[in-house]
Simulated scan of single mutants.
Amino acid sequence: MCGRHFQPGDFAVTAGGLRRLQSGAVPLLFSWNEYTLPTLRQNVWERRPRAEEPLLDLPADLESEDDMDTAAPDHDYCLTPATAVMAAEMANENEALRQNIGELQHQLEVLQLRTRFDIQRLAGSDEDTRLVCYIQALFQAFWKLVEPAVNTKMVRITSAQTASASSSEVSQPATKLPPIDELLLFLMHLSVGLPLRDLAERFGIHRTTASRIISTWTHFLYILLGSQRLWIPPEVVRAHLPPEFSAFPDTQVVLDCTEIFCQTPSSLLLQSEVFSAYKSHSTFKAMIGMAPLHLCLACMQDP
Rank of each mutant, 00 (worst) to 15 (best):
P265A: 01
L122C: 03
A247D: 13
L194S: 09
T80H: 04
L58I: 08
Y35C: 07
L270G: 11
P292L: 02
Q112M: 14
Q228F: 15
R19M: 08
L18P: 04
E103P: 06
P233N: 11
D76C: 09
F248T: 13
P54W: 04
L255P: 11
R20P: 03
Q105C: 10
M290T: 08
H5Q: 12
M188E: 08
L255D: 04
P73Y: 00
S125T: 08
L145V: 14
L224Q: 01
F11K: 02
Q301M: 10
Q263L: 12
A87K: 05
L221A: 03
R20V: 07
M290Q: 06
T83Q: 08
P233K: 09
T258S: 06
N94C: 04
P195E: 01
Q140G: 09
P178C: 07
I135Q: 15
Y134P: 12
H106Q: 15
Q271P: 07
L230T: 09
L97V: 01
T14D: 11
C133H: 10
L221W: 00
E46L: 12
S211L: 03
H240Y: 08
S31K: 11
A71E: 07
R130E: 11
A286Y: 00
F142V: 13
Q172N: 13
D57Y: 11
C299G: 14
I101M: 10
L145E: 11
A298Q: 10
G289N: 01
T162G: 12
A160T: 10
S267W: 07
V274F: 12
F245E: 04
W217T: 00
A12E: 15
C257H: 02
E127F: 15
D74E: 13
G3N: 15
W32G: 12
E53N: 10
F139C: 03
H206Y: 11
M188D: 02
A84Q: 06
L295K: 02
A87Y: 00
M300V: 06
S166C: 07
L268V: 12
Y222Q: 15
L145A: 12
W143R: 15
I157H: 05
T258C: 05
M287F: 06
N92Y: 02
F248L: 14
L138E: 15
A123H: 11
R114Y: 10
A141H: 11
L104I: 05
V253E: 03
E127P: 10
P249V: 00
Q22S: 07
L108Y: 02
L113F: 10
K176N: 09
F261E: 08
G204R: 05
L297T: 13
A137M: 04
P148H: 07
A88S: 09
T36W: 02
V26I: 13
L270H: 12
D10V: 03
S166I: 00
W217I: 05
L270W: 01
Q161M: 09
F117P: 14
L55F: 08
W32H: 14
T264M: 12
G289Q: 01
P73W: 00
D250A: 13
